[in-house]
Amino acid sequence: MLGELLHILAAAIISWILFVAVDIFFKLPETGGVVGATAIARDIEAGGGDLAGGTMMGNIVCSPDASAGTLLAACGVYVAGIPGGLAAATLVFIGNRICHDPGYAGTTGAILATFVIYGFTLVGFAASDFIAGMVIAILTIQGLSHTHASRLLGRLWRVRE
């Protein structure tokens, strides 16, 4: 019971690092992929947040990015192991094309996450931990406080620059 909760928390931290790193590597905070993402960034900035961080949040909303890739990869590993994760990567790729996303953050994230998660399942983690962990991770970014999350993301973005 407690062990599983700890596993979930650890998975949350791992997937948080994973998807934020991939997203920032693919320059998501730089510019909004679609006008909708820009509008969300604008609103977050108006609420006291950071524009670059807001842009990244907008991009996460508007297209399956690395976070979605991680989630679906976790799902894929949960239902079918490595092939499932790769299938999830394919689905994310299709999703990216549907959502008018020029980048490959989601696909890369999914493939990367597949192997990371599979590796962790070998050391005692369950894939379902990663599903819950990813949801917690996205909650910390998108769901708790937009102001603080966007400032944090903005600071990370400036580090990369």
Partner: peptide, 17 residues
């Protein structure tokens, strides 16, 4: 409205999971 989307996004993640 603009800040509704991230919350809805979390919901999507949670439901998909």
């Amino acid at each position: 409205t603009g800040r509704r989307f991230p919350h809805a996004n979390v919901l999507n993640f949670a439901v998909a999971g």
